[in-house]
Design a binder for these strands. Structure first.
Length: 590
RNA sequence: GGGGUCGUAGUUCAGUUGGUUAGAACGCCUGCCUGUCACGCAGGAGGUCGCCGGUUCGAGUCCGGUCGGCCCCGCCA
């Protein structure tokens, strides 16, 4: 670069800078070579400036400019001038001016890029990941990373003002039972022993509370060796926090403050607080899931009692066997075609529904439906009343056990909203889901497992049920849901050893196993653990929603493919035999 | 572990019922062009139709397998 020093970025210049001598550096986005005058759109992280090579002004740099191609890296020195009348580009922030180049330095050439960097051209994701450093030059992707940075800055400022300490916890730690599959790291120094990468810093942040740190947070990588999805990566980032001497309301206030500061910084939006709340039981009843998208209606309505003794054998049998019949009234959807209905039936089959009964309510109130004939007029009236069925409505029914009914209808509800384009992308509906059950029965393991995690405090008044009806014990856990995506969750923790012992017992974790795996936690609880609790947000999911993307890969600089590989580095990869023997590993493959 | 979907030029895609030499746009290369901004004009190069096998006189097209991308179920306290 010689003595050249960048004076401005490619987004800085405007009418205020006219006649100034400036130096810009960046990448060649496009060149328009007229034989005489040559225009180059110069791009950097901040924006685009048009630079002009005019043979009459400086024939030497103009001569040099002919070789410039896409993505060459250059520095130019020249004078800012107002563009001629009628030549202003209103699509560009710097469109009022251009830089007449006196001196061109070619800092680096570039091969022809393997894919165009134009924003509007879709490129296969595999290729984008293989050349991620080119993909990230595209303004949309760069903006996502910039926005992520702003979000982190905003929440750091907010939490700092709220007296939080940012403290790091170990990445090499020990595997604990329960939860997701661990990523393991063999120990060289301790033959046959392994570290595990943390699924979350859960126990360490609790120990920081015992340590008297009072308020902790961390923007931290977590690792779970499970299959990937559009919103799940094997390594992901949590905004993790924990507080002492607090109750649920304190957490809600802090979390709402974090979200408010974050949305102000990234979207310039003022969120309404406090966020609405809904109990887990209500969410399951009305939406069939614990993370309802409240941007549209189509709530689930129970017909179990209405059809208990009805003439339709399928419904009656399901109810007799202890199952449920629930319905969605798709308002105004009676115009759905037979194919629409077949598609939706096939769709809910993915979630276990053996069928999808439907009724079209015609203009005269009559039912057009394959199942209409099985119901008496009175039964039809009772159903119509319960469902508030009006002419033009389309009623869907699923009859099965509770799990199938709610998951099928919850997914049907979302699919209907997508098909009918009911979802407003500019709406951000937050929702606290509260009063989760503490435990749920796992028929495979033939024992109860923790709905949240084993350190979640039970609701005081339900404690007596721990030994008698563990499935009915409510927990002091809460999730934060945004537009139907779980973006965070947490709980008040158990801070007394006796309570922790009782919960371990309810989880069928033997005292010896608890002592082996959690001795350090149990000991800490006996050494002055304060009441405490916390919450963790999924930063990737949050940024995905804020950026309006469909996958968290678009807000992660270097994400993995669905097979958990990295096309850029070709990780994971084999290692030398010697590395394995040092780690006391003797593989039986190869 | 399972279901779905895609794979053709550097990129994004088209490719009829299985039939001659596999096309388009953009990009790339050469030349021309002094006010463009997705500059324009003329010409040119560029293909193991993911891979393997099968059916057939003949396969980008049909069949089987396999590899890879994506979406989903299971899984993810």
């Amino acid at each position: 670069m010689g003595e050249l020093k960048r004076s401005h970025t490619c987004n800085d210049l405007g009418a205020d800078h006219i006649d100034q001598e400036v130096t810009l550096m960046g990448w060649v986005l496009r060149r328009r070579d007229h034989g005489g005058v040559i225009f180059i759109d110069l791009r950097d992280r901040w924006g685009i400036s048009q630079i002009v090579f005019n043979p009459e002004l400086n024939s030497q740099s103009h001569g040099k400019a002919h070789v410039l191609r896409s993505e060459w890296v250059i520095a130019v020195r020249g004078k800012v001038t107002r563009r001629p009348d009628g030549m202003v580009n209103t699509n560009l922030k710097t469109g009022e001016i251009e830089v007449m180049v006196n001196e061109l330095r070619i800092l680096n050439s570039s091969l022809t890029p393997p894919f165009p960097l134009d924003e509007d051209i879709e490129v296969s994701e595999n290729l984008r990941l293989q050349y991620r450093y080119l993909d990230l030059r595209r303004p949309g992707m760069a903006d996502n990373l910039i926005m992520r940075h702003k979000a982190c800055q905003a929440l750091r400022t907010f939490l700092n003002d709220e007296n939080f300490l940012e403290i790091e916890t170990p990445v090499l730690t020990r595997s604990t039972p329960e939860g997701a599959r661990d990523y393991l790291v063999p120990s060289r120094v301790n033959a046959g022993k392994f570290y595990a990468l943390p699924q979350s810093p859960q126990l360490f942040k609790q120990l920081l509370m015992v340590a008297g740190m009072d308020r902790y947070y961390q923007i931290v990588k977590c690792f779970r060796d499970e299959d990937l999805r559009a919103d799940r990566q094997p390594e992901f980032t949590q905004v993790d926090m924990e507080l002492s001497f607090i109750v649920e309301e304190d957490i809600y206030r802090i979390a709402e403050g974090v979200m408010t500061s974050l949305f102000a910084a990234t979207k310039g939006l003022a969120l309404q607080t406090p966020f609405p709340r809904m109990t887990y039981a209500d969410a399951m009843e009305r939406y069939g899931c614990d993370k309802p998208d409240t941007r549209f209606g189509f709530e689930l309505i129970s017909l179990t009692e209405v059809v208990r003794n009805c003439g339709f054998q399928v419904f009656r049998t399901v109810v007799e066997k202890g199952g449920q019949v629930k319905s969605i009234n798709a308002k105004g959807c009676a115009s759905f075609s037979r194919k629409d209905l077949d598609d939706l039936t096939a769709y809910v089959a993915n979630f276990g529904a053996k069928g999808l009964a439907w009724v079209k309510v015609k203009e005269d109130g009559e039912w057009q439906s394959p199942i209409a004939k099985f119901f008496t007029a009175d039964e039809r009236t009772a159903m119509a009343t319960t469902l508030d069925a009006q002419p033009g409505d389309l009623l869907f029914f699923v009859a099965d056990n509770a799990v199938v009914v709610r998951s099928a209808l919850a997914e049907l509800r979302l699919e209907l909203a997508r098909r009918l384009k009911l979802i407003d992308k500019k709406t951000f509906n937050f929702l606290w889901v509260t009063d989760f059950p503490l435990l749920e029965y796992d028929p495979e393991q033939k024992r109860h497992t923790a709905v949240h995690h084993p350190f979640t405090a039970p609701v005081e008044e339900d404690m007596a049920l721990l030994e008698t009806e563990p499935g009915r014990v409510r927990s002091r856990a809460y999730d934060l849901v945004l537009n139907g995506t779980e973006i965070g969750g947490g709980s008040l923790r158990i801070h007394q050893k006796e309570v922790q012992d009782r919960v371990f017992a309810a989880l069928s974790i033997a005292p010896e196993e608890a002592a082996d795996k959690f001795a350090f936690l149990l000991k800490a609880l006996e050494l002055g653990a304060p009441p405490h609790g916390g919450i963790a947000f999924g930063l990737d999911r949050l940024m995905m929603i804020i950026a309006g993307r469909d996958t968290i890969r678009d807000v992660i600089a270097f994400p993995k493919t669905q097979k958990a590989t990295c096309p850029l580095t070709d990780a994971p990869a084999g290692v030398a035999r010697k590395q394995l023997t040092e780690l006391h590993l003797r593989p039986d493959w190869q």
